[in-house]
Design a protein around this nucleic acid. Structure first.
Lengths: 237, 237
DNA sequence: CTAATAGTGTCTATTAGACATTATGTG
DNA sequence: CACATAATGTCTAATAGACACTATTAG
């Protein structure tokens, strides 16, 4: 048989295959707390429970898996997050009552203010502090996916500046240090933290200053290539 | 409708979904060269081309995605590799002529000698030097998946001892350093390399020695937890 | 002035890189 | 002995951590 004949007669439903979905762990930072976006499930299974934003690939609308996750996040937040990264893919027989199921999971980061207004208008999406997650009963294995996303972000805090994407476009070094400290669960030396970022040349002075209590702080902006930089030496745990 | 009723009537083929497969980039090291396992495709599409070992989830036989990839690797090599790690999941409309397709990719490492005999008996699987890959025309996007796996392994060489799994169970520090040097494409300082491994306490002296030309070298074995260790400081690029 | 927070100066202990030296095998 | 490779000793420049200090705003 030629390949042409094979493709002409190919039936994608001839073989049983796992259910395939996409899920996103969207983090943000506000007032000293890391938060994750949860949505209320409006359909079976696990209807009424809260879980991660996500869904199925739309074979017409989506060109890639990343298109799918971005489309889903935009539906819930109104905006496209500035940082999206694949986390891991989980597939097994037991995670979904419908049967063998695979989910391609992503971690995404966004500034709280970016999607504040949109989320405030809907009742089926909300930010939940990571600290408050333990009490909740989430759909499927979403709690462990969030834990994996949080662990990945913690690792990123050790060797990159990626956690900065949880902050507004213009941010202070103090805020950035606080995000890292929350992720790592320990205080960092101000001088060391600033030295490594300055040496890596990852941010630019916007010329503006924050207007808080005490001495105003310089507002910086990430350089476009900042997310790809990895420090030679990690912060210590 | 209750969840029970929903699940009873659930039809997994009601909606169009992408084709889902699993692929593995299996690396080994022999005589100064990194090699990757390729298999010849015996079915359409891309029949006759060489590509990565992989295939479809068997909903009956496989409990998890990792079961699938290990089953496929065992079919081709006769053994289960000591190191298997998820690489990334690639899904888009164009990578497979059959339509929207998703592949969950893994990186795996094994000692060349472990599967030498089995591979020598089959004609549809072979080791290919990474250096010789450029000339070949592989199936689907497998060449770029191999490049991603190689890049991941290079990163691991910078901050972990994971490349040791390309070596036999008992190996010398010189051999390990050579693997790292090939991955990084630059020579390393012997003293520095040994110091960091000794300090991290990742290997044990087997008491045996290698029998090559020159002074015999101590044969070491990896500690079980060695794959999880990350050095605080990376090797420099 | 004080309080509060931002930002800098500087000492020191640690350590990776460099490379010289010693050790242990074979013929 | 020479030769080859393994393994170690040791100097030095670089630097992260620690923390004291100075700077800049508000009131």
């Amino acid at each position: 048989m030629t390949e042409e004949a094979y493709l002409r007669d190919y039936d994608p439903k001839a073989f049983d295959s796992p259910l395939l979905s996409v899920d996103a762990v969207l983090f943000t930072y506000r007032e000293g707390q890391l938060k994750v976006l949860l949505v209320e499930r409006s359909n079976h299974p696990e209807m009424g429970k809260w879980g991660l934003p996500g869904g199925f690939v739309d074979l017409e609308a989506d060109g890639t898996l990343e298109d799918t996750v971005i489309r889903k996040l935009q539906e819930k937040t109104g905006v496209v997050p500035p940082y999206v990264e694949q986390l891991s893919t989980i597939g097994n027989r037991s995670r979904d009552k419908r049967g063998w199921s695979v989910t391609v999971c992503y971690t995404a980061l966004i500034a709280h203010q970016e999607c504040e207004t949109h989320i405030d208008t809907v009742s089926d999406a909300k930010w939940v502090n990571l600290k408050d997650l333990e009490k909740l009963d989430l759909a499927f294995d979403h709690k462990s996916i969030i834990a994996a996303g949080r662990e990945r972000l913690k690792q990123k805090a050790l060797y990159s500046i990626v956690p900065a994407y949880t902050l507004p476009e213009k941010f202070t070094l103090s805020d950035l240090q606080h995000v890292h400290e929350v992720l790592l669960g320990k205080p960092l030396q101000k001088k060391s933290f600033r030295r490594r970022i300055e040496q890596a040349d990852l941010i630019v002075d916007t010329g503006e200053k924050s207007a808080e209590k005490g001495r105003p702080a310089i507002l910086y902006r990430l350089k476009p290539e900042a997310s790809r930089h990895t420090f030679i030496r990690n912060l210590e745990l």
